[in-house]
């Protein structure tokens, strides 16, 4: 058994703690100990964005983020977007625009969109495309995803 480290952090608004393996990625920790299966593993090397989460306000590839580095940080995963108050406008936009086919890339796309909107609620189409350049989708051809981000962007800009 490899070395573990106790960490305490905020996960989707709630304080949590875990014994993180020092060699584990945040992705493994979230999917494993926290059963947050929404964060997807699709490459494990930073090339696809399926594992995108937001850490201290910045989007990150959780597959390349050491789990121990979450200590003291604020972490948002896709599961944190849906609450009693309803579903997040970004999620709604992805549904309404037909941006979801197999859906495997969707949580990563949605988290990256949340991040992009937090930086800039009024994105141009080019900014949207560039903002999603680290997120691979094999099904949709991106057009409907880009429209979804534009629609969510219109909502956010209001």
């Amino acid at each position: 058994m490899s070395l573990t480290q106790k960490i305490i952090f905020t996960l989707n608004g709630k304080p949590v703690q875990a014994d993180a393996q020092v060699t584990a990625s945040a992705l493994e920790l979230l999917r494993g100990a926290f059963e947050l299966g929404g964060t997807k593993l699709a490459c494990g090397e930073g090339e696809c964005g399926a594992c995108t989460i937001i850490v201290d306000g910045r989007s990150r590839n959780s597959c390349l983020l050491p789990a121990v580095d979450l200590d003291g940080r604020e972490v948002l995963t896709v599961e944190g977007l849906w609450s009693e108050d309803g579903i997040d406008p970004v999620q709604q936009a992805f549904i309404d625009e037909g941006a979801i086919q197999c859906g495997f890339c969707t949580p990563g796309m949605i988290m990256q969109t949340k991040y992009l909107l937090s930086k800039n609620p009024r994105m141009t189409p080019e900014e949207i495309e560039r903002g999603l350049e680290g997120n691979v989708c094999r099904c949709t051809g991106y057009k409907k995803i880009i429209s979804a981000v534009a629609a969510a962007s219109a909502v956010a800009a209001e």
Binding site: I87, I95, F104
Partner: peptide
């Protein structure tokens, strides 16, 4: 008519459990 996918909401909120999960 433009109809949205039935499985989209569950996928958007990550309720869908894929085989990989």
């Amino acid at each position: 008519k433009r109809v949205t996918k039935l499985d989209a909401p569950d996928k958007a909120v990550a309720r869908t459990r894929y085989i990989n999960d």
